[in-house]
């Protein structure tokens, strides 16, 4: 059993850190995990993405052509990854910055206005936590408790005042996932 997840957006949206939280949670849950970032010039202002693979056995390739789930934090990410997600896979869209829905009808699509939700919570840096909450709810790749524990154990101590807001952001994302998936299957 192996789940491949791509998190894509532009620099500054917390793409790489969201992937690391997922990787820490997977490691602490006793899973095999790899985290592989896009690195280099694209880190400076352009697109940023990382691939996280969570598995029950040792992992081969660090990247896959057709991931099972993709978080798209902006429109270029959706344009790039929508055709690539496996049939029946999960697409999580930040509708604050993406002005269209998915074109494909063979995917489970989760939509969340992540920027607005983050700003309602008082910190625009929470966008990645909202999206991560939505992904975890939609895929069940790990438990929400494992994600919360990973944040608590691996977020630097000086940022621990942000933990409650991050937990709320995760829950807001999960709520959005439940709502949009229910609407999709209705």
């Amino acid at each position: 059993m192996q789940t491949e997840i791509v998190i894509a957006g532009f620099g500054g949206q917390g793409v790489l850190f969201a992937g690391q939280v997922l990787a820490y949670a997977a490691m602490d849950s006793g899973k095999h995990v790899t985290w592989f970032p896009s690195y280099g010039p694209e880190m400076r202002g352009g697109t940023a993405n990382c691939t996280v693979i969570v598995a029950d056995e040792d992992i081969g390739s660090l990247t896959v052509r057709n991931p099972q789930a993709v978080i798209c934090l902006n429109l270029p990410s959706l344009d790039k990854y929508e055709p690539l997600v496996v049939k029946g896979g999960v697409l999580v869209l930040n509708r604050s910055l993406i002005n269209r829905s998915a074109n494909r009808t063979d995917l489970r699509v989760v939509e969340a206005p992540a920027n607005e939700l983050a700003e309602e919570l008082g910190d625009k840096r929470l966008v990645n936590a909202v999206m991560l909450g939505a992904l975890v709810e939609a895929t069940g790749v790990l438990t929400m408790a494992a994600i919360q524990k990973a944040l608590k154990d691996h977020l630097p101590a000086k940022h621990h005042d942000l933990l409650p807001a991050n937990f709320t952001a995760l829950e807001k994302g999960a709520e959005a996932a439940r709502r949009t998936l229910a609407a999709q299957s209705a």
Partner: peptide
């Protein structure tokens, strides 16, 4: 290679 250098693993 670059991917061994840049990747994270337990």
């Amino acid at each position: 290679d670059g991917s061994i250098g840049q990747m994270m693993e337990p």
